[in-house]
Simulated scan of single mutants.
Amino acid sequence: MKLSMNWITLRVRDLEASLDFYNRILGLPIERRFESRGKQIVMLGSVGQPKIELIQGSDPALKPECGVSVGFEVESLDEAIEYLKSQGIPVARGPITPNPHLRFLYILDPDGFEVQLAEHS
């Protein structure tokens, strides 16, 4: 059996705040926005890449402290840090350098989910 990642779902309290974070601040394009069974849903991500599915809801199936994080690759962690500062987004943890070829940090989305930004060299 061959698998490929399709999407990860985050149940969020405020869809517009999450859209602002993932679309405007992190730059993920909105692939589509729709309603299903009374819930507003937005799929974000680039063509050919796994998506983040945001579902508006007041009772998240996963709590931020469940250990799930979403990771993204960046070209320059230093540039990412400066950009995040300019957007008022604090670094929650890091930067961490576990080996000479990897540096990463964590920020929090509006619901408290960890988002990892990693630079590989």
Rank of each mutant, 00 (worst) to 15 (best):
K2V: 14
L3G: 10
N6W: 05
W7G: 02
I8W: 04
L10H: 06
R11F: 11
V12H: 03
E16W: 04
A17W: 09
A17L: 13
A17V: 09
L19F: 07
D20I: 03
Y22R: 08
I25D: 05
G27D: 12
L28E: 01
R32C: 12
S36V: 13
S36T: 09
R37G: 12
R37K: 11
I41E: 08
I41A: 06
V42W: 02
G45K: 10
S46V: 13
V47I: 15
Q49S: 14
E53V: 10
L54T: 06
I55Y: 04
Q56Y: 07
G57V: 07
S58T: 13
D59K: 12
P60G: 06
A61N: 02
K63T: 12
K63L: 13
E65Y: 11
S69P: 02
F72H: 05
V74H: 04
S76M: 04
L77G: 01
L77E: 01
D78T: 14
E82P: 00
Y83N: 07
Y83C: 04
Q87E: 15
Q87N: 12
G88D: 08
P90R: 06
P90M: 07
V91H: 01
V91C: 01
A92V: 08
A92I: 04
G94A: 12
G94C: 09
G94Y: 02
P95D: 03
I96K: 05
I96R: 03
I96S: 03
P98E: 05
N99L: 08
N99W: 07
P100C: 07
P100M: 06
H101D: 15
Y106W: 13
Y106I: 00
I107V: 14
P110K: 02
D111Y: 06
G112K: 05
G112Y: 09
G112P: 07
F113D: 02
V115K: 01
A118S: 14
A118W: 03
E119Q: 15
S121A: 09
